[in-house]
Amino acid sequence: MTALLAVTDLVKHFPTKGRVFRAGAPLQAVAGVSFTVQPGEVLGLVGESGSGKSTIGNMVLRLDQPTAGQIVFDGQDITRLSDVSLQAFRRRAQPIFQDPFSSLDPRMTVEQIVAEALVIHRLASSRGDLQAQVVSLLELVGLNASHLRRYPHQFSGGQRQRIGIARAMAVKPDLIVADEAVSALDVSIQAQIVNLLRDLQKRLGLAMIFISHDLAVVEYIADRVAVLYLGRIMEIAPARDIVRAPKHPYTEALLSAVPEPDASRTRKRIVLQGELPSPTAPPSGCVFRTRCPYAIADCAAIVPVLQPVGPGHEAACIRTGII
């Protein structure tokens, strides 16, 4: 199968301020990341703040320009698209954002919000067809025609996220990039939206990059998961294997830190020491070594590369056998 999306050696540096009239060391938000997404596949990106997961999502959507590397979508390198081809690409790759309060224009009705992309991409044959499409999109996400003339502020957080999902689905995209799409929702609402996303993804055969700091949600929704630390992939594997048999010390620590609603739990907790190193001056060798409980002298000298450790399972650690 050919990949719908193939990302190769992706790098993003942000300039920083140094001393007067001089640039500081660049902030390496993404430092050489490669992965693929197959049609209909969900790739989860997990990591903590500063891991580069959102920057990757933004570059895949061409909301941000990479410093280096390739992003090939359906055979085309989207980092070099002209404006005309960019518009065609935008019809096929759609974002769903975290904050359903700031990502919807408060002065537009629900109908206008969902119809906007259909109009821009000329996907409706008539005014009647346009409204019919909008209504069926609202129904797709659990809303209905009675909501057409309402404004975003008249909806709860969960309903607004449904509107955001309807807007993304309007152009029948092939790829969705969902960045913390359920993180801002109330606990009792989150499960509704997770189910909706998973149902739509399966029913419509969408490929999706699902970005989240919540490992349990990612495991539930993603087929494969990439674990990021300081702009690098530490481990990538089928979701089940990442959770049940992590091979990278960072993944192990991350999993052990997830608080679980079970008072009788006796799982061992690995509390990471120290702070996330500055992305302007990452450690030599393995970037995780300064906080890794298993680090040895070699870890400062050798830059670990992703190596196969099981079927479809790769980890970037010179001591993978340790876990």
Binding site: S156, S188, A216, V217, E219, Y220, P261
Partner: peptide
């Protein structure tokens, strides 16, 4: 009970069907 059931947990079997939900909104 509904809250506890609706939280995705690590290692749960997603092929067992959709997450249980609490309908409606706060």
């Amino acid at each position: 009970r509904g809250l506890l059931k609706s939280i995705p947990r690590l290692g749960m079997d997603r092929d067992a069907g959709p997450l249980p939900t609490i309908p409606g909104t706060v």
